[in-house]
């Protein structure tokens, strides 16, 4: 027993009795409460942007990261798992857009749009997500091209919508100007056209690309020349 503590005998009986009695009452009270039940909560629309800015308390980048994790974890609410397909995609897009406005350099919202929400087995929802990626890509093409390239892949191989894939690939070719971006990104429209049977248009584009002098790597030049030759051969047949 420490010098600052008295014996338990110093505590009146009434106080001593109250402690176990109150603890028993608390245990009983908790026991009679219904067990917690899991209920899926619908994804609410994001608050207006000015409110998010205020809530960020001067640190929108950190706040955007927190919001992104919250949105991503929305399918796993306590005690229940909600398939992505059950989410209101209009609201998911509104959240992704709001997060991007808080942190414009973030790539997480676009990655989630292209590879998480954009890969559900629901073509209508996939198209919504791909359109969102395209709109956001156009705002900063040299930074956001990877997600647009992924959108081309999804449109071509998942949705089997070649005109849509071509539209996205054309957007890449038209808007990506950074020389540091790998050349295949801006050449995707050529290969989509080949797949679509538009060999004449593909040939013109490929020839133009070779003529422009933008392709400096000898191996890449050889590869593209060979591809051009194949196109001309197929036309001759």
């Amino acid at each position: 027993m420490g010098a600052r503590e008295r014996s338990i005998a110093a505590v009146p009986i009434s106080a001593l009795a109250l402690l176990p009695a109150a603890l028993a009452a608390q245990l009983y009270w908790h026991h009679r409460l219904p067990p917690p039940s899991a209920a899926a909560t619908g994804l609410a629309a994001p608050p207006p942007q000015p409110v998010l800015e205020v809530a960020a308390a001067g640190d929108p980048t950190s706040f955007a990261k927190v919001l992104m994790l919250r949105l991503q974890a929305f399918d796993n609410q306590p005690g229940i798992s909600i398939p992505f397909r059950a989410l209101d995609y209009g609201r998911v897009i509104a959240w992704l857009s709001a997060i991007l406005r808080l942190d414009e350099r973030a790539s997480y919202p676009l990655l989630a749009a292209a590879r998480l929400y954009g890969e559900v087995s629901d073509p209508a929802r996939q198209r919504l997500m791909l359109e969102f990626v395209r709109e956001e890509f156009l705002k900063d093409p040299n930074r956001r091209w990877p997600w647009m390239a992924h959108a081309v892949f999804v449109a071509r191989h998942r949705l089997h919508d070649m005109p849509l894939a071509l539209r996205y690939a054309d957007a890449l070719a038209a808007h990506v100007t950074d020389p540091g971006v790998p050349p295949w990104v801006t050449q995707m429209n050529i290969f989509v056209r080949v797949d679509m049977g538009e060999t004449e248009a593909a040939k013109v584009l490929l020839g133009g690309l070779l003529e422009s002098g933008r392709i400096t790597d000898p191996a890449e030049q050889r590869f593209l020349m060979r591809r051009l030759q194949e196109l001309e051969d197929s036309r001759g047949k």
């Binding site: 600052r4 106080a15 109150a22």
Partner: peptide
């Protein structure tokens, strides 16, 4: 409050 009060009194009565 009864539980916290009982714990508080127990602590207070034992304190020198």
């Amino acid at each position: 409050i009864a539980l916290l009060g009982a714990a508080g009194l127990f602590d207070l009565y034992r304190r020198n």
